[in-house]
Design a protein around this nucleic acid. Sequence first.
DNA 1: CATTATGTTGACAGAATTGTCAATAGGTAT
DNA 2: ATACCTATTGACAATTCTGTCAACATAATG
Lengths: 224, 224
Amino acid sequence: MTEPGRRVRRTPEEARRLILDTAEALIARTGPEGLRLQDIAAAAGISHPLILHHFGSRAGLVRALTQRAAEELKDRLLAAMTQPEYSTGEGIDRVFEAFRGGLAQRLAWLAMEHRDAQRGKPPGPGPQAGVDGDAETASILRQIADVLHARRLAAAPPGQAPLREDTVWLVHLVAAVAFGDAIYGEQLRRSAGIADEEEGARRFRQWLAALLRDHGDGGQPPVG
Amino acid sequence: MTEPGRRVRRTPEEARRLILDTAEALIARTGPEGLRLQDIAAAAGISHPLILHHFGSRAGLVRALTQRAAEELKDRLLAAMTQPEYSTGEGIDRVFEAFRGGLAQRLAWLAMEHRDAQRGKPPGPGPQAGVDGDAETASILRQIADVLHARRLAAAPPGQAPLREDTVWLVHLVAAVAFGDAIYGEQLRRSAGIADEEEGARRFRQWLAALLRDHGDGGQPPVG
DNA sequence: CATTATGTTGACAGAATTGTCAATAGGTAT
DNA sequence: ATACCTATTGACAATTCTGTCAACATAATG
């Protein structure tokens, strides 16, 4: 089957993508303890020195994962929150979906690991100013708030224009609750005595959508 | 100074408490990578086999930490959410404070680590029915919702009694957003262009308190 | 004071992890 | 074809981590 001397040779970009994809899947599935070079290599069908070759060190891999997670969050959240149906139930659903597939876990893990990595660094100004990945996250909520606020201004009755700060906190709220829900929502729901997890999660999203619609329209009761 | 043969001898409860306290502090400070028996032992001023002696294995220690974190969450949330001033700004503040000191990080980490531990276990019914720590979390939101709902019913004008489900989701929302905020709030705020983190966090809590007061009272605009 | 029970520790074993290095092999250019 | 570049790998090194074990020390009990 596998003749000796049969190697796959990828472009550096392909190799990096393969490694990052596999690492992401592992983090999502096996939790924080699951980022071992050998495991990643085994799951990707490569040898672990290849990871070192492409990322320099384990820390380099973590840095790349952080950047990628931030980028992914930006893409998904922007897509979910700036579409026309946002603030209807479907819009909220899409925001919650944005954190699925382990992205929330990855972000939480990286946020913690990141504080770790910063510890011990000399406080002097490093080669690049911001923290790694900051360039990606830097303006994500700001961009979303921009789009959303323009829409709210257009939709608001004259004399009742919402403050921009209100829109920012609205976006912040949805992002934070979706994040918290992705990580701890299931256990919260169980602790509230909700039996059907799938159904419970759905109803919570609907309730939240109604709450926000209510707030955004200035007091109109939800339809249902 | 330290004569040879000078040992501290604790009661098992004291020893366990010392170890758990130290481990919690380490998790909060050094992130997920920081739970090494030797580190805990060094920080606690003991030798690492003592941890194995009291908890059997590293997994046993994690189990104990999980139970303790759940208990702590229950205590803090109950205290924060069932006091009279809840749903005012101060009440919300206290809920957010409940997750401070690394509790949110610990819960997130343990939630992930836990899925890890479950993986590999045979799907058949184990010796104890529930997952470890579930006995502690089992009813926390339910208890809070009970207290809160009674108060809402008493305060509501006749004919406008809120549904119990509404109260449950209210509690769920606050818990989820406080959780998400504790872990990723700072980065969200930075990505929204908020300069002063302390001040930004405070204003968000105030805004959220106003939103909830608005919802709970049935449409009254907030004071500010 | 002798005995028992057990909290506590140092030393060691085994496994696993990151990182290094020389050698191999798949493309590409000359 | 030949030469060159570099993606890829197997084997090895060094460190570190969990877990074991016999020995020691401390408190309680007779």
